[in-house]
Simulated assay, not measured.
Amino acid sequence: MSNSYGTLFKISTFGESHGPAIGVIIDGCPAGLTIDEAFIQSELDRRKPGQSKITTQRKEDDTFKILSGVFEGVSTGTPIAIVIENQDQRSKDYSHIAEAFRPSHADYTYQAKYGVRDYRGGGRSSARETAARVAAGSIAKMFLRKYSVDISAYVSQVGDIKAPHFSKLDLSKTEDNIVRCPDSDTAEKMISLIDQVRLDRDTIGGVVTCVIKNTPVGLGEPVFDKLHAELGKAMLGINAVKGFEYGSGFEGITLRGSQHNDEFYNDGGNIRTKTNLSGGVQGGISNGEDIYFNVAFKPVATIMQDQDSVDKNGNPVTVSGKGRHDPCVVPRAVPIVEAMAALVLTDFVLRAKSSKV
């Protein structure tokens, strides 16, 4: 049913937006890993709703409980179960679409596929589920610390407002503002745009850029499980994502091979590349350079305006957005992108360990 992700480091999430709780089971976490619960909570706090005027005002503490797999602060090697109780559901906000299909939501496709759907906040299709991914991703980040892998995502674009290239930014400043853009001047413009869109009862999309430093050489498989392909799959599986590009991406088509090739050189015994248009991946395998990619998020589908639609019997209806929703999802998507990247890399690190005698 595709509720699981990973090969050796495998997660399975459960729960619905307006159910009693959501959660995740992590299978394959090596024994002996120190589990920093304060760090898990800090990651969940970065994703949770109600953070600022430019996010949904649903109030969820996202306080978690570890039910298994951890003893005296250390992983035991058995499945780690984490549960996050839902606190601030307002299911009545969705009673008006119990029979109707909201434009650009999963309402129609879930009804067509399963013959039944949980209309309260979208049920399983809600981005509320991503809190479970962030909890699992925080443990993956703890594992990657052993290899000094650093994963940093930030908001690089909202609408037509773009931040400078990551090489010109201090990514340690990402959390300095509510939009999570490390360039303060660009951040102010983004916040103003999102706030205006909110007042217009509309939504807007954006881009999250992720940079991964200190990736070990040799992660990824040469054919069907290429590293960049798995990163793409992980990112495209996040709610509202419409695009993924890594390295030079689509801009690379404007270059000739002589301009695009990353030439090698010997850096004190380490093989490096003079440029990094490959985005840290060649032949589907990491080469040790920075991995960087962009993730495009569409405007949130729920808008506080009347829209034409149909009900489940095909009759015309007018649907108007209600409830509490993000005018722009990208500020809260930053920790989700990081979490999914951490899950991919952790899985490949463990697979690399089992690929040699």
Rank of each mutant, 00 (worst) to 15 (best):
I11R: 09
G15A: 12
S17R: 05
G19N: 00
C29S: 12
A31D: 02
L33I: 05
F39Q: 05
Q41H: 05
Q41A: 05
K53M: 07
I54N: 08
D61C: 14
T63W: 11
F64T: 10
K65I: 10
K65D: 12
I66S: 06
L67D: 07
F71A: 04
G73N: 07
T76E: 07
G77A: 08
P79G: 03
I82K: 10
V83S: 04
I84S: 06
R90A: 02
H105V: 01
T109G: 03
G121P: 01
V134P: 00
K146W: 03
V155C: 00
D160C: 04
K162W: 05
S167K: 04
R180I: 00
M190E: 04
L199M: 15
R201F: 14
D202T: 10
V207R: 01
T215S: 12
L219C: 10
L219V: 03
F224A: 11
D225G: 06
I238E: 03
Y246P: 01
G257N: 08
Q259W: 02
D262W: 12
F264N: 01
N266W: 15
G280C: 11
V281Y: 01
Y292F: 15
Y292W: 15
N294I: 00
A296N: 13
A301I: 03
D306R: 13
S309K: 09
S309V: 05
K312D: 11
N313Q: 12
G314P: 01
R324L: 04
V329L: 14
A333L: 02
V334F: 02
L350Y: 03
A352F: 04
K356S: 15
